[in-house]
Nucleic acid binder design. Structure first.
Lengths: 202, 202
DNA sequence: GAGCTCGGAGAACGTTCGTTCTCCACGAGT
DNA sequence: ACTCGTGGAGAACGAACGTTCTCCGAGCTC
């Protein structure tokens, strides 16, 4: 979300392409994909329509590029938040602290992939698969984090579900406390599995 | 979803209005709200455009009526699934079994309120508030179920988050096993709070 | 300086869609 | 039988939007 550290990693080689992607990202996320026309995007990016269409062949391709961009930001920021924590337990719980900060930001409008899926999946299979890919990646990431910490893969799935539920609920109801509720549930799940392990290894 | 038992409760007094709502519900849910035009709805409902506009003043009003209809179905079917279970624990877990059956149905395309929010919230504040109302209702219902079973209100919130996460994840990835994963997480949360209660009352 | 190319501004085109209007057939009442 | 009103089918209208086209000016080459 916010630019900090080596956030430059998110930028592509072509600077014009990057300007368009960032302008589209802001407008689409704030107003929805369909509500933002090519003219508004042209104006925000400071680029003529003709030039816009030399870089991207269609609006759909811009949407897909924005989703790639957001996926990279999400993955990088999650990884950074996790890396700051030392213990396996804190690394798993760092997800929810990251969500809490995101939910409280003024620009929060839910998960862009869920939004894109709801808005465009019926007309763009490419958008639908990109949303599915993103969710699959996040699930695998949580599973990996869980198994690396000595927990079951299933626990990673469960923590993923809590994070997804917090995102949609916070987006629709505007209640940013969902991140904390999800975190406390995650703590309970972690504690339960840890004590079950201690029990089974006497 | 499926009509069984006293599903007639969902019907309004005006039969023409009800025909339109049910046709709109099927088309909107299967194809998305924007993808279905008034002409397709007119054809499916077997009603002329003029008659359609005598019953509803606009498409938005039809969308809102469909959301009301779905909210009633959801509330009734959840209540029925819960009522079939005898113990407090099974009543709380009945939610996830209901979700499992729903996810496996061919017509499953996610939570209609989440979809409507993503598609229309940016242009229709009424849709946004109706989605928020629905989620608030469900949250309160889970909180009530939890407290009636002797658990904390917070546990109800956590079970709600699991259900929400399962809905979005199942919708986007098409993986219906999310209901079972949510259920197992819920079982763990229930067990943990039960044993904590046993501990604190020696 | 003349010619040429590139790109900017925005008009134009074709499509979609919500909403309204027109025309006409049918049936009831006298 | 004639009239009148109701309602059906679908044309018409206006707006929005993605995409393409036109016109024109700026800057580079010889």
């Amino acid at each position: 979300m916010t630019r900090q550290g080596d956030a430059r990693r998110h930028e592509s080689a072509d600077p014009l392409r990057q300007v368009i992607i960032e302008a589209a990202d802001e407008l689409y996320y704030a107003n929805g994909f369909r509500a933002v026309g090519m003219d508004a995007l042209r104006q925000r990016a400071g680029v003529s329509l003709k030039r816009l269409y030399t870089v991207f062949p269609s609006k759909e391709s811009i949407v897909l590029a924005v989703l790639d961009y957001r996926h990279q930001i999400w993955a990088d920021e999650i990884a950074a938040a996790v890396a700051q924590q030392a213990t396996p337990r804190d690394r798993l719980l760092a997800i929810y602290d990251y969500l809490a900060g995101w939910f409280r930001s003024d620009s929060f409008r839910g998960c862009v992939f869920i939004n894109a899926f709801g808005e465009l999946a019926s007309e763009s299979p490419a958008v639908a698969t990109k949303a599915a890919d993103h969710k699959r990646d996040f699930r695998r990431y949580m599973e990996r984090l869980a198994t690396e910490a000595g927990f079951s893969e299933e626990l990673g799935d469960q923590l993923m579900l809590l994070a997804e539920g917090a995102q949609t609920t916070a987006a629709i109801t505007g209640d940013s406390s969902m991140a904390l509720k999800a975190r406390r549930a995650a703590e309970t799940l972690l504690g339960a599995e840890a004590s079950a392990q201690a029990q089974s290894v006497p």
